[in-house]
Design a protein around this nucleic acid. Sequence first.
RNA 1: GCACCGGAACGGUCGCUUGGAAUCCACCCGGGUUCCAAGAGGAAAGUCCGAGCACGACAGGACAAGGUGGUGGGUAACGCCCACCGGCCCGCUGCUGGGUCAGGGACAGUGCCACAGAAAAUAGACCGCCUUGCCGGGGCUUGCCUCGGCAGGGUAAGGGUGAAACGGUGCGGUAAGAGCGCACCGCUCGAUCGGCGACGACCGAGGCACGGCAAACCCCACCUCGUGCAAACGCAAACAGUUCUCGCUUGAGACCUUCGGGCUUCAAGCGCCUGCGGUCCGCAGGUUUGGGAACGGGUAGCGCGCUUGAGCCGUCGGGCAACCGACGGCCUAGAGAAAUGGCCGUUGCCCCGAUGCUCGCGCAGACGCGCGGGUGUUGGGGAACAGAACUCGGCUUAGCGGUGCUCGC
RNA 2: UGGCCCGUGGUGUAAAGGUAGCACAAGUGGUUUUGGUCCAUUUAGUCUUGGUUCGAAUCCAAGCGGGCCAG
Length: 149
Amino acid sequence: MSDEPRFTFGRGQKLRGRGAFKPVIDARACSDGGAIAVHGCPNNGSANRIGISIGRRAGTAARRNRIKRMIREAYRLSQHELPHTAPGPYDLVVIVRAHEPLGLDEYRTRLADAMRHIHATWQKRTNRRNATEAKPRTAPTDLESPPGV
RNA sequence: GCACCGGAACGGUCGCUUGGAAUCCACCCGGGUUCCAAGAGGAAAGUCCGAGCACGACAGGACAAGGUGGUGGGUAACGCCCACCGGCCCGCUGCUGGGUCAGGGACAGUGCCACAGAAAAUAGACCGCCUUGCCGGGGCUUGCCUCGGCAGGGUAAGGGUGAAACGGUGCGGUAAGAGCGCACCGCUCGAUCGGCGACGACCGAGGCACGGCAAACCCCACCUCGUGCAAACGCAAACAGUUCUCGCUUGAGACCUUCGGGCUUCAAGCGCCUGCGGUCCGCAGGUUUGGGAACGGGUAGCGCGCUUGAGCCGUCGGGCAACCGACGGCCUAGAGAAAUGGCCGUUGCCCCGAUGCUCGCGCAGACGCGCGGGUGUUGGGGAACAGAACUCGGCUUAGCGGUGCUCGC
RNA sequence: UGGCCCGUGGUGUAAAGGUAGCACAAGUGGUUUUGGUCCAUUUAGUCUUGGUUCGAAUCCAAGCGGGCCAG
């Protein structure tokens, strides 16, 4: 941590396995950005993890590989600017729609916008849950006044 | 149109996967860091054929089902490749050259051939042509000619239909005709010669019989056991299954009894198990609606199969070629929500524009202008189709650039 | 990855190798004060490319597109 931040992208930062994608999508925190849509969900680990889901409608295998590598490169280069604190590091699932492949900078801005949106969503959710636990089943009315803000 | 070749290269930097080495953390499993090496294709694609490999089945044979189909060769094998033969098309004509063909059998049998047409398959006869008899009319040279009708016979030349009409053209022949006869061509059969063979050349005979469709059923010859690396094999959570086990002592009560005892409930103690706790002590709970152990099968998961192979490169030799042999050298991707990427620079390739030099042709004949080719400088642009998933040999499809030959404009 | 099936107007569906139909939809005209109903009429198709055949939606081959199953 004392060193300069490095831009690695190892196996621990990838979503792996058949069962890893479904809970993230079922968490229903999604930011739709046209060409790509990002689902997010806090995990209990120490760092953000990302998984890319790209269907056959996006093109042939070579084209799908190309888009996937661009998104991965965009995530790799901007991983330290993305939020990974507060409600926790996130598991991300990027859903790729059918589109013409974009440039690297375009993917970086879209990814950052989506991450900000998801981060805000989860901050709101955790604040609401803390409020309801603080005053159990007495006041469902004061949803818009969470304490501590 | 055919054949062949290429599918960018180098460097820097940030990353990914695999392998190796060093080092650090960790009881083990494993993980981190640094360095080094390697890292998509001609189609990796479609999954259309053929194999290897794995498992299951299988004495042998036959049937069924599917596939292939000129001949000879190549190959591990093929529906692939090479050479040749034959048919068709194109060009040329002094030679033959190029393209293309699922190219066995229609005397084994069954079936189909719409419409049109007289007739569509052991031929048959609508209009015709010719002829005989009878009846009627006309003509005149009075026994012939001609016209019409009815009945009978001979023909298949001509007509029109059709994709296709039972050899074609010509001459002879005939009442009219007809392979009825002859010549050439086609067809069938036979002999000889050449060729491993498909077949070809040539000679003779037959007077023509045998329409087309088998990518219609079918017959003949040959080939094929089925399933597929998510195969197969190893380790193995969870859930379910099977088996075993859950004790000892004392006291009290109920029941049975062959009076030896058996069975069960409650309470206490010892033992055992679980949790708290670093350990002992201790505390709490459990000790048959539950717990523990073992077993085989095996899911998730992990490993293996997994990359040395009918392999690649070079030289020499054999063969018309496909291909084969000998020798030498090389090791060259192994992922698993799935690794080969991003950025920068230089060079090479292609296109466009500007410009310099040079060559050829045309106009002009002094300069010059236009077109085409080669080469240099500079600016801008582009680079397709497409990503290994067990591995090979082919085919097909997608698609960029170049070279050579040929054809057309 | 492996296996199986199917492609006919815009939609749904027929058609033994011999003229591609039917219904709904769409367009135009008529009927009606207008709309609907009804009547008449028009447009539009065999997934693509080759081959067999006199002739192909049908038979054969290759490709393209879509769907289903195993895991």
